[in-house]
Design a protein around this nucleic acid. Structure first.
Lengths: 174, 174
DNA sequence: AAGATACGTCAATATGGCTGACATAAATTT
DNA sequence: AAATTTATGTCAGCCATATTGACGTATCTT
């Protein structure tokens, strides 16, 4: 039988320097995210797509006109990695590119109705899970959850999407 | 300029069937988890390890005596995928195996002090982020956050670790 | 003795990351 | 106008991590 640590006291782990480590929240985050993305994974298989495709089409749908460079910032991957995935989504008609008005070098990305439909379907699955999770939590509690999640995010160098999410409260440039 | 959806109202997205989708929480989870695992990623590089190694050594440290099969359940990967990563951790002295007492087919996994030290270091980084995130949240609020995360997790077929986390409240077998 | 289980391993394959180099078009700077 | 920088695309190759299917061995169960 494996040891069964309780949620607060550190019972056996090393705890360098004797600090209290937040094992419970660390593991809850792992499992919560595992199951959260698992919802979409199954659906994506039917389309021959993976998580990478989901992330791209999601943010393009949500933030129409996103530049390739913005997407690279958000996803924290390289141009080459994005390239393959983005090309597939373009070829299969989930995304279209438009040349930028001000800067004609830019390729602004837009989801097609087909792309939006896929994103909505996946977001629906994830929304169902979230709604189930907050079913027993009052509005103030849900706001606390949002506050926690927001505070977990690095804000020293926010990408374009994060600036939108955080309401442009800290424009470091432009 | 990209559209900038506010946190509640659905301004442009497809919303299949007109349902309210929880875009805000979906995206907060993405960014929070991205940055949360990012903390460990940098440290891991110095050891020549990746996320896969972290997950394995973490759960072995936390739940000493975990069987290989348990680990497969928790990580949701195949035996073959686990094989290489586990072998590396064994070869490099982060983990040791002991033959099960009752069942000599089992290889029970234990972290060495070296393994525990690495896990503690990584958990320390993640704990720092969590502590920063909950700094402005009262104890009741933190409990709400735990409640939310717990409720995000599938419990229909809990693995051994989840049974421990959830206090064995629903033993489907054994 | 037969079968099931726990684990390990071999072989082949796919996905999604990475680096480095290079090309093009368009904007910006000098 | 020329030089430089920027935004993007692409080629070639490598690495980590995941997959499936098959097979072998030790051990437990029936």
């Amino acid at each position: 039988m494996a040891a069964k640590p309780d949620s607060q006291g550190d019972d056996h782990a090393p705890a360098a320097g004797g600090r209290d480590l937040r094992w419970d929240i660390i593991e809850l985050l792992f499992f919560a995210y595992r199951d959260f993305v698992g919802d979409a994974d199954q659906e994506l298989e039917a389309f021959g797509f993976g998580r990478a495709h989901h992330r791209v089409i999601h943010f393009v749908t949500r933030y129409p006109g996103l530049k390739v460079a913005d997407l690279l910032d958000v996803l924290r991957i390289t141009k080459q990695s994005l390239g393959r995935v983005l090309k597939q989504l373009l070829d299969e008609g989930y995304i279209v590119q438009k040349t930028g008005n001000n800067d004609r070098r830019q390729r602004l990305l837009y989801a097609t109705p087909k792309g939006e439909a896929l994103v909505a379907k996946l977001a629906g699955l994830q929304t169902d899970r979230i709604n189930r999770a907050i079913a027993g939590i009052d509005p103030a509690g849900v706001e606390t959850v949002r506050q926690f999640l927001r505070a977990m995010i690095d804000r020293d160098d926010p990408d374009k999407v994060l600036e939108a999410i955080f309401g442009g409260g800290r424009k470091t440039r432009e």
